[in-house]
Design a protein around this nucleic acid. Structure first.
Lengths: 292, 292
DNA sequence: AGCAAGCATTCCTTTTTGGAATGCTCTCAC
DNA sequence: GTGAGAGCATTCCAAAAAGGAATGCTTGCT
């Protein structure tokens, strides 16, 4: 069929064969097969040139249009989508608190890369379809995927300055007066960030059973800003709020978390220009972040 | 590609395979090959159902439209053109004087056959392209073609009644007074119909060198009707004019010509419904014509 | 927990497609 | 009008693509 299209354009089996990187013999038979299948001639073989029959002319026009639209679609898939668009899933809190504030800079650094950002809690990167890469929170061990560490969490305790009412907070008992804000790993299970932080700080006997629970760290931080209580959060996630005074840090204890944020890609993406560029940018930003 | 279209519709390799009369294995690989070629996934394999990626959805839509238009075009070629239309070349004079007056009856007899009538002096039937069949004048010997005889020429001499001015025309000398109308076989060669007729009539010493020449018998007949001279013509070609009195026949001599009109087809058309029907009708009409 | 549905994969067969060489016919030029 | 060349057809064989059967693997459902 493709063969007939080229023959129709070149009006010659020989030239069509050249253009298609085939022999004239192959072209001749392809067209003949098509004609036989249709039970209708498409070309009139004259010596030194070919003419289209009415049926051939009609079919040629249709085929050209159809192939063209398919070609455009194919190109838009292989080129546009593949070469310019980077589809990435980022955990919601990381997206909002870390990536979004840096998106403008990303656009400057990689002006020719279009970003598609989704914030599913669990991404579908392994299913090799909708995503080019992802940022994940975890231990960096994901089968069949490549991961580069971006940053390890450094947990600090924060709350709204209004909550303090000028009082000093210096020990476990002071802390116990506040409402604890927790983040859920699943509907019935909390992340153990409070536990880890308290252990690291050397605070025993603090009862964290009460308090508010949120499914997203982001909501817990928002709650803290609103003066609802104290929460443990990664320092990078609340840097802006600390700088603007929306939040204050309690205690000078920063606990290295057990898990980290990773940039995750599929092995097939190795060497992919835009993925590599994005990774480089992310790592540079993360390094700058740590240096602050 | 066709495979992907069906998979996109059925959302299942297994069902697509059934519809395509293939195995699930073949379908699976076809799609995988397409994806590999594009470097882009088109489907998300879930268990118990498939989902389209954005790229897949876009491609599916394009492909469906493109294939549909090609299919329509293909169908119009194989069905409409092939099944309903009969393309036929008929020598000009035969077309005008014999076939055209019978076209209305042909439409009645074969209402579902559309006729495409061309009147090239030399048809292209052997080149298998534009024609389904032809009517030819000759000896019935054409390589690679099948021929059925329709009618043998019966030459009579005719002229306009006004030309006679009431005079009797009974011998060669009477004939010599008229202008002879000739038909050319090629620019410099006449058909020998006058010669044959004169020989058969037993008229010696008639000088036919002068007179008017025409490239078509039809023009010669028209000239005769206009009173320009006498011509030899096949009786079937002038039957209407004789009946209406536009022409009259001179002498009661009808000469069987050396050549005949034949219905000619390609061997590949053997068994073709519309060709067979047309042949049957032609032969019946020719028989009826002879009976008159 | 076990079964069934459904896609992936492997190995082998079948079908299709392609290439090289050759033949045939027409056109063009001398 | 004759020879050369251009261009399509055809034949035979090789290569490659597609297909089939069987099997494995994962997951959703009962």
């Amino acid at each position: 069929m493709k063969v007939f299209e080229v023959v129709g354009q070149t009006r010659s089996f020989t030239r069509a064969a050249e253009r298609l990187n085939l022999t004239q013999s192959a072209v001749s038979r392809q067209v003949r097969n098509l004609e036989d299948a249709l039970g209708e001639d498409l070309l009139i073989r004259r010596h030194h040139h070919l003419e289209l029959t009415p049926a051939g002319a009609e079919l040629l026009a249709t085929i050209q249009e159809a192939f063209h639209s398919i070609e455009v679609s194919l190109r838009s898939i292989t080129e546009k989508s593949n070469q310019n668009r980077l589809r990435i899933n980022v955990p919601p809190t990381f997206a909002k608190r870390w990536l979004l504030p840096r998106l403008a800079r990303l656009r400057e650094a990689l002006p020719d890369v279009d970003i598609s950002l989704s914030t599913e809690a669990t991404d579908t990167l392994a299913e090799r379809g909708l995503l080019d890469c992802a940022i994940r929170f975890g231990d960096g061990e994901w089968p069949m995927l490549d991961a580069s560490i971006l940053m390890t969490e450094r947990h600090v305790v924060v709350c709204a300055p209004s909550l303090l009412e000028g009082a000093k907070v210096e020990g476990p008992s002071d802390l116990q007066r506040f409402t604890f804000l927790h983040v859920l790993a699943s509907p019935d299970r909390r992340y153990l960030t409070w536990r880890h932080w308290l252990d690291a700080a050397g605070f025993q006997d603090v009862d964290t059973r009460g308090g508010l629970e949120f499914d997203l760290l982001d909501l817990a931080i928002e709650a803290a800003c609103a003066g609802l209580g104290v929460t443990v959060a990664d320092r990078s996630m609340v840097r802006n709020q600390l700088q603007s005074g929306q939040l204050v840090q309690l205690f000078d204890v920063a606990v290295e978390g057990h898990e980290s944020y990773w940039f995750v890609t599929r092995p097939q993406s190795a060497g992919n220009r835009k993925v590599d560029a994005f990774r480089a940018w992310l790592l540079a930003e993360a390094a700058a972040d740590r240096a602050e």
